[in-house]
Design a protein around this nucleic acid. Structure first.
Lengths: 204, 204
DNA sequence: GTCTATAACCTGATAGAC
DNA sequence: GTCTATCAGGTTATAGAC
């Protein structure tokens, strides 16, 4: 069977634009992005953006929804999981999240800062609240530590997983870790964080 | 003695502009901020911005340096501290950081996303790298856990402290915590995180 | 020092030829 | 479907009166 590699040239015009939009929006943020940048990145004319998508904003919303699903999807999987033990869920979440973030390191800072700069722009997109409150995961946390608000543990787990990627550019800029070291540390964290969470759950 | 309250009206024109710039830049980010917004927020004319500061960019850099100092200053204090035990340092850092972040909740997301959107714009500003590597704090971490890269612990401590403020808007938007609950949880975290870090250091 | 008016430029979007 | 040319509106920065 012949090799079948998807390269930019193979994509439809519409997909080329989306792909370019994903890249440029992520890199510069919505406000700093010019539609001309996206057109150039796609190797196409500016007018085509408005032909395929109605406006810069429409195109952005499309990209944004994708990114939010990718960022919050990993959490949702854990929340829907009604079978595994708390311990296993933590392991799964940490591993899945770190793997995803190694592929898309600047996803969190992008999504979170766009939400911050434009609060109320991305509403109802998140029934994640009820989902989380009523989840088996939250119940398991409450059973294990009835003295703690479940968010205390969720903040900590997510913080340990996500923060290195958010702060990454700063720490690399400061010469504290180079890229290969960073990747190695993140791999190590897949085993480290679950152990730490276990210790936290049993502390105090 | 008569009350002496600093209100906007008391400030010099220059300081009024800076104050407005701090607020608007933080709220909308550099790219989405129009100099008109700042002038309006300051209750002054647009032309005065260019009279006192040379350009939008110069004004922004001024604000940015302030914010970076505020965000990284808390860490620097711990790094310069050569007297306290590791345990005490963790307590100090966590408490100081959370107190500062309760006053300036959107400081981290602002600084980190501006650095991300414009990498290389704020260079040499951070001799934090060497400072951290050579710090007593790093040595103490290595002594306690020679098997771990000190950054593993620093990422985790900072993540637990800072992440709730970065993710805050999302979790509030999802109706997972309201503002008073959030503040209460953060107060609780000042005691919680040091205990957890202790448990982590002794785990494995 | 502070204002109004305006210059010079840039950006998103569209019209119309092919 | 794709392009070039252009419009309409908005943005930073400045000139010049007070």
């Amino acid at each position: 069977m012949a090799k079948r590699i998807k390269v930019a040239a193979d994509l439809s015009t519409e997909e080329k634009i989306k792909e370019a939009a994903r890249k440029v929006f992520q890199q510069k943020g919505y406000a700093a992005t010019r539609t001309r940048d996206i057109a150039e990145e796609a190797g196409l004319n500016l007018a085509l953006l408005n032909y395929y998508f109605r406006s810069k904003e429409k195109l952005f919303e499309l990209v944004m929804v994708e990114k939010m699903q990718k960022l919050f999807g990993v959490i949702a999987v854990i929340l829907y999981d009604t079978e595994n033990t708390l311990e296993t869920k933590v392991e799964l979440m940490v591993t899945n999240y770190i793997d995803m973030l190694l592929e898309h390191p600047d996803l969190p800072i992008f999504v979170l800062s766009e939400i911050r700069n434009n609060p109320g722009r991305f509403p109802g997109n998140l029934p994640l609240g009820d989902l989380m409150r009523n989840s088996r995961f939250a119940t398991q946390l409450r059973e294990k530590r009835p003295d703690l608000h479940p968010m205390q543990l969720i903040f900590s787990i997510l913080g340990m997983v996500v923060f290195p990627f958010i702060g990454g550019p700063v720490f690399e800029g400061a010469g504290l870790v180079d890229k290969p070291t960073f990747a190695r540390l993140m791999e190590e964290r897949k085993k480290l964080i679950p152990v730490w969470v276990k210790a936290m759950l049993e502390s105090g």
